Computed example of a mutant assay.
Amino acid sequence: MIPVKYTSNAAMKRHERAARSSYWDNWKGIAIVAVVIIHSCGELSNFPPDSLTGLFGIGLRQAVNFAVPIFLAIAGFFAGRGSSGPSGEFYRKRLTRILAPYLVWTTIYLVRDGLADSLTIRQVIKGYFFGTGIGIGYFVIVLIQFTLLTPFITRLNSRRKHFSIMITMTVVGVFFTYYFPALHPDSPLARFPAYALPFFVWYPFFHLGVYVSQQGVAGITFDRPRTFIALAFTFAVAGFIEGYFWAIQGNYGFGTSQLKLSNILYSASLFLAIAALSRGNSVFNHESWLAVAGRNSYAIYLIHMMLLVPFQQVANSYSGLVGVQPLYIFISASTTLIACVALALILRRLLPQRVATMVLG
């Protein structure tokens, strides 16, 4: 007779929480890999869009352009689960966790830049308030805005209100994005990071994450992962076509943007596929190096430009390597990711837990 092993409800819940944690950590790991790949692609803009390398670049960028949208959707997903209670307490805990590492690393970047060249007060102020201190800090500014909006979003009590606000804000964001970066690229509001700072250009992702955490994927009417995967693939192809169109018009930056409409639909569909798949058992439910990167994704986001730039400066000295962009990007991204994960793990081991949390999140 085979003995039966009884498991308590508490133990089962702990197991489910662990599985969910590994699942979402793996996806955060995939998203941070995508972020580093995006920032490794700077040389691709130097190739004609209709060349083989140019087409590879547009395709690669479209494939990984889910990075920030997925981070925001996952942030909304967990904010929707854990934002109950007084707003003041939620703000204090969440903003401290976001701001402390951001301020630490922005200061490190600015000190480094100040030692290499003199900085003006204006540059320092912009560095902190507009995210330019670490170059790509716009994401943190956007995340702060959504954190402030979280209690208002989570208090919505009907699907109609959720979808009315999501659709309205998405239309506002798309209009802004196409009016400035797409059609008026010489406008100050079309320059980075100005066009990426307003929360409404990223709006659907965070709110969609909150909605799914509260209503479930079935609240979207259909919840089969295959449907969302098919939609994501369709919109990815549409994104490649749109990206090529803008690139041959001379607006390569918008062609590879995460904010163009086709990419918004691609990223939203992909997040819904991820959420639908989370209810089953898959390879993403198990521990992996991606999960380790995912748990340290915020730290990697803040740190990686400090390491990627010098790595690419070394790589740029080999002209043959620059000409083979797939290999160039692979070496740049993988070297940076390995170094960032190693640095984060070393700091977590060396620093007291409270200090490590302030530095790394």
Rank of each mutant, 00 (worst) to 15 (best):
F56T: 00
G42W: 00
V124R: 08
T107H: 08
Y328A: 02
Y6F: 14
L307R: 10
A344C: 15
V359H: 05
G239E: 00
T120C: 04
I329W: 00
R97G: 12
P69K: 01
L265R: 01
R97S: 13
S158F: 09
A218E: 14
N9Y: 14
A63I: 05
I220P: 08
N281L: 15
G280N: 12
R155F: 08
N157V: 09
G361R: 07
L143E: 14
A18T: 15
F176I: 04
F163P: 06
L337S: 06
F330N: 02
V33A: 09
S269D: 02
G137L: 08
G253N: 09
P181M: 04
K126V: 10
K5R: 15
P188N: 00
L189E: 05
H286E: 15
L148Q: 03
G280W: 10
V314Q: 08
F176L: 04
L231C: 11
A34W: 01
D50S: 12
I121P: 07
S288P: 11
G114C: 09
G114W: 07
T227C: 11
F129W: 11
F235D: 00
C41H: 00
S8W: 03
L99G: 11
M306V: 09
T132P: 01
G280Q: 13
A218Q: 13
F77T: 04
Y195M: 04
G216A: 03
G219P: 03
E242G: 00
I30W: 08
G323D: 09
F222N: 13
L110E: 05
N65M: 03
Y298K: 13
F235R: 00
T227H: 14
L360E: 07
A18N: 14
I108S: 06
R97T: 14
Y298A: 12
N65G: 11
D50C: 06
L197E: 03
I144K: 07
M12G: 13
F90I: 02
E287I: 14
F66I: 04
G85Y: 03
A232I: 02
W105V: 05
R155W: 08
W27S: 08
I220E: 12
F146R: 06
A34Q: 06
G320D: 01
R122G: 14
V35A: 05
Y6R: 14
N65T: 02
L208D: 02
I30E: 07
G294F: 08
I248D: 01
G361F: 09
A75W: 09
F192A: 07
Q123N: 10
M306G: 15
L103C: 13
Y138M: 10
P69S: 06
S21T: 15
I38Y: 00
I125H: 07
L148T: 01
P3I: 03
N296E: 12
C340V: 12
S278Y: 07
W24E: 15
R122E: 14
P193T: 08
A273G: 03
H207D: 09
P101N: 11
F130I: 11
V359P: 07
S164I: 13
R94E: 02
Y318T: 10
T150L: 07
A73S: 12
S22F: 15
